[in-house]
Design a protein around this nucleic acid. Structure first.
Length: 416
RNA sequence: CGGGGUGUCGUAUAAUGGUAGUAUGUAUGCUUUGGGAGCAUGCGGUCUGGGUUCGAUUCCCAGCACCCCGACCA
């Protein structure tokens, strides 16, 4: 991508109304545009990050046998009435009324809809287990949207629903998905803590959350540094300084962001919505369900909250909008530009995702400051100086020092 | 939804009961190229509605928006 063509514009100053780091940096670097509180549009840079994360998730979901679907956002009132949640979700769900008086809701979650779908397709134990997921925009009337992408009224989420013929089978899958989520979150460059919490609106039982430590997180967890124990402070009977019940280490308390959660739904929804299957023994039984959410927008926000410095964002390479930021420093004869063009073409041939700062009437300082703000993991500078040594300068965004690398050896250094 | 704060060019800010200024961005031209570069010229603004007043961006009231705290929630 040529930077001269990229749809973006950076801001030198923090937007005055934003307090959270993720909002400040994502807005300043033009990853997103804010439409209103808790509602953001994704611009080219931000969308590239979003797609990266989506694909990390897809790959992992497909690995464990998930199948992707895409449910509608508009939801009929009738299915929500079956579970009694039409009135219960009133404060959360956006709703509208058609001319005829018919009411519809915008999906704030999809338990009802998925149950409605599968009850028409699942008849036998042979149809189970079944794992369906989607990557979808959710709408919730947040009374107080805040903290940039961390709490929105419209936000991206991956939701997975699993269907089982026995509690035992469900438990097995619960363990699989736990590992899988930990893996996904780690791949996104975060350090997840598996945390026990209360079930909220979904279930009476305790559930589990995937928390990421962050100064400005809105949750508080009591956790063991060895990662073998963690409870949301809301429900925890333990506190800082007490011993971890698993390993005896001293417990810590920390602010955190909930990036994912898993709920054992049991037969809560299948019962209300008559989702049965015929088991091996010929008996009609309720389908056992689980649901598993992963906040896409929230993951992006969390990554920025965790990976930044005073100059800008530091993207982990797995989710970075580009892998390499190629910057040329203009000389009088235009030689550097020629060399940079060549390098750009070559990198593209090697399928390196490269953002090439080809702009000519822009000062070096501005280019470098913008590069730091945008936060692409590897910065390559080519200038008269480096060309004199048949080299380029390489610097990782996460490191302080740059080094000269011979152009010939560039492929090796970039591990192409 | 309760409490608090803030609304001035795209962004960040200053000032004022009587012509709204600066920086940055942006447009044009020239110069410049290793940390948001220089000169010149141009474009661009007082959230909305009501009240007080000869006159309101300024004072008062209401609304709206945004931010923060709380409650709620992924």
């Amino acid at each position: 991508m040529l930077q001269s063509q990229l749809f973006y514009k950076t801001l030198k100053e923090d937007p005055k109304d934003e307090q959270s780091i993720n909002a400040k940096l994502l807005l300043r670097a033009a990853f997103v545009h804010k439409e209103m509180a808790g509602v953001f549009s994704y611009l080219p840079l931000g969308l590239r990050v979003l797609r990266k994360i989506e694909n990390i998730i897809r790959e992992e979901m497909d690995n464990i046998g998930g199948q992707e679907i895409f449910m509608s956002v508009l939801q009929p009132k009738a299915i929500w009435e079956e579970t009694g949640r039409w009135s219960k979700m009133g404060e959360i769900m956006y709703r509208c009324q058609e001319e005829s008086g018919k009411e519809v809701g915008l999906g704030s979650t999809h338990e009802e809809m998925i149950t409605d779908i599968i009850r028409r397709f699942v008849n036998s134990y042979e149809d189970l287990p079944l794992y369906l997921y989607q990557i979808q925009t959710k709408f919730r009337k947040e009374l107080r949207a805040k903290s940039g992408l961390l709490r929105g009224r419209e936000f991206g989420m991956k939701d997975l629903y699993s269907f089982h013929s026995s509690e035992e089978d469900f438990r097995k899958f619960y363990e699989i998905i736990k590992k899988s989520y930990l893996k996904i979150i780690k791949k996104c460059g975060l350090d997840p803590i598996f945390t026990e919490a209360s079930g909220g609106d979904f279930t009476e039982q305790y559930t589990h959350e995937f928390q990421v430590l962050a100064k400005d997180g809105e949750d508080t967890i009591i956790y063991c540094e060895k990662r073998d124990f963690s409870e949301n402070k809301e429900i925890s009977k333990l506190s800082v300084g007490q011993k971890c019940p698993k390993c005896g280490f001293l417990l810590k308390e920390g602010k955190s962001i909930e990036v994912g959660n898993i709920f054992p739904l049991g037969t809560r929804y299948s019962k209300d919505m008559n989702a049965y299957f015929i088991d091996k023994d010929g008996q009609r039984k309720l389908i056992i369900m689980g649901c598993y959410g992963l906040g896409l927008s929230r993951l992006i926000g969390s990554i920025v909250e965790v990976h930044n410095d005073e100059k800008g964002i530091i993207w982990p390479s797995s989710v970075a909008p580009f892998q390499v930021h190629l910057i040329h420093i203009q000389d009088k004869k235009g030689k550097v530009r020629e060399e940079a063009d060549k390098l750009y073409v070559n990198l593209q041939k090697e399928n390196v995702e490269v953002l090439y700062d080809d702009r000519i009437n822009v000062s070096v300082g501005e280019k470098l400051a913008e590069a730091d703000l945008i936060g692409i993991p590897i910065r390559i500078i080519i200038s008269e100086k480096t060309i004199a040594e048949k080299s380029v300068e390489i610097k990782k965004r996460s490191e302080a020092n740059a080094k000269l690398v011979k152009i010939k050896e560039l492929g090796k250094v970039l591990k192409l």
